[in-house]
């Protein structure tokens, strides 16, 4: 299970995360990224986090209960 945290103060709206994991990340009308869900088992969140030029996405891996 991956826990996703976005630092919106860093987000510049490149949108790489929304391209790589559209079910998890969204770009709002202000051009900033928001998360549709805060946790996911989809490993594409890791690709999205590493693709962010602004390093605005942090993913914590949690052991499922």
């Amino acid at each position: 299970m991956y826990e996703i945290v976005i630092d919106r103060s860093l987000c510049s709206g490149f949108g790489a995360c929304a391209e790589l994991a559209p079910e998890i990340f969204d770009v709002d009308d202000a051009g900033l990224v928001s998360i549709r869900v805060g946790q996911s088992e989809d490993p594409s969140v890791l690709d999205a986090a590493s693709a962010c030029p602004m390093a605005a996405i942090t993913v914590h891996e949690r052991q499922a209960a």
Binding site: G15, A18, E23, D26, D28, G31, V37
Partner: peptide
């Protein structure tokens, strides 16, 4: 241009 997202789809 806004990147392609699932924004307009129903939320999960």
């Amino acid at each position: 241009t806004r990147p392609a997202t699932a924004a307009r789809r129903p939320a999960p």
